[in-house]
Design a protein around this nucleic acid. Sequence first.
DNA 1: CTGGTCTATATTGTTCAACAATTTTCGTGC
DNA 2: GCACGAAAATTGTTGAACAATATAGACCAG
Lengths: 231, 231
Amino acid sequence: MKQTKLASIEPTTTAAEAGQTVTEITAARIRERVISGTLSPGSHLSEATLCEELQVSRNTLREVFRLLTTEGVLRHEANRGVFVTTPSISTIMDIFHIRRLIECSAVSGAHHRHPSISKMRAAVDAAIKHRDRSEWLDVGSADIAFHAAIVELADSPRLSAFYAQISLELRLVFGLIRDPEYLHAPYVGQNATILAHLEEGATANAAEALEKYLYQAERFILAAYSRAIPG
Amino acid sequence: MKQTKLASIEPTTTAAEAGQTVTEITAARIRERVISGTLSPGSHLSEATLCEELQVSRNTLREVFRLLTTEGVLRHEANRGVFVTTPSISTIMDIFHIRRLIECSAVSGAHHRHPSISKMRAAVDAAIKHRDRSEWLDVGSADIAFHAAIVELADSPRLSAFYAQISLELRLVFGLIRDPEYLHAPYVGQNATILAHLEEGATANAAEALEKYLYQAERFILAAYSRAIPG
DNA sequence: CTGGTCTATATTGTTCAACAATTTTCGTGC
DNA sequence: GCACGAAAATTGTTGAACAATATAGACCAG
């Protein structure tokens, strides 16, 4: 198992990568390129080109493609190769429908002493700190962590894994809109409101506020996406 | 791309396999062995042994392992290989929690003219026919198709795909209990009741009957699983 | 110009063999 | 039984080769 080769191409092997296989590291790199838009939606990924660029063997890259296809980051067509997925309006609508279903149900059934509440508190505090410094990408990450912590209230590993995939697709949408401030700035306070309801055990109020927020966010993102992506 | 080699080992290349890649066919075969119990829960899958047995290359098998790991059929541990997943009591509880969330929500929001209703009808009719012939595996398959059709009422590709994975895990549980008649016989009529409510537009009644059924089925399967799997 | 056909090229899917790295097994001594 | 070291087994990765499929380009007919 080789871990040194990748280090020589990408400038830094991060601490997070230590102990990871080449396959995992490569998957993370492609994932990041998709989310950042470096690999643009709909584009075809050539095995020959990409394995040369990333300095991994074609077989390893194929394993990575299998992983990322199942995650929804890539789309595989037999004999024609692999393409970056193309979020559409219906993608966004499906994502928000699922979020309302999963997140609101998790909040409705939550116990106000659930361990995940402290994760939500940490995420809200982080978002506020980053907003004050105008670090909008970090605000976005804190928002995503807040919502993942909501899903953890349900104590369902499968729902949490499913939500992680939904989250990844949503990040792809955010990346295409390319305006983290516009996306995240209006909502930092909202998360604090939802959390406050939860911390005092008012789960119905929390679920109602969350649902309202999700409807608003959906409309907001649909509009932004329509402007950012012509046709 | 080779399609002839697999045919020479397994007795018949089925019609369903025509046009499929070796990878897909191999994945399906391993999936089936896991569900049937031929590959038992927790067991380690040796790349060297299995690729020889299935007459595919190790690289191809590794791609298949990536696919099946993401599906939840196998569990991958870096440097130690791949294991068949081991459903536990908490697996069953998680599955039913998710089923109640997804299925009941889909039924509550259903339109009584939704195209999926006819799939549900076909599944109910098939289950009754197979029950009358004591073909219990087929009854089970029809039941699973009925519930997948329920999820399709939501018109959400991601929920349907997620549910397909949940379904697969449930089939693994059923396989371990090894008594399809015991599992499915008590519930054939129940599906007809749920469907009748839906066909007359009484979605709340349908959702209530479905939820009740899911709680019953959960308790039933938990008990059967506890008896079938010691410890 | 458009559509069809054929050929060459490019690409994907799969295989094989080899090597590096990690884990497991086995043997030995206390 | 436990600890240690060596050997063996296994997984992770690589690169080359070949088969199968798709794509691109050239040519011809209407």
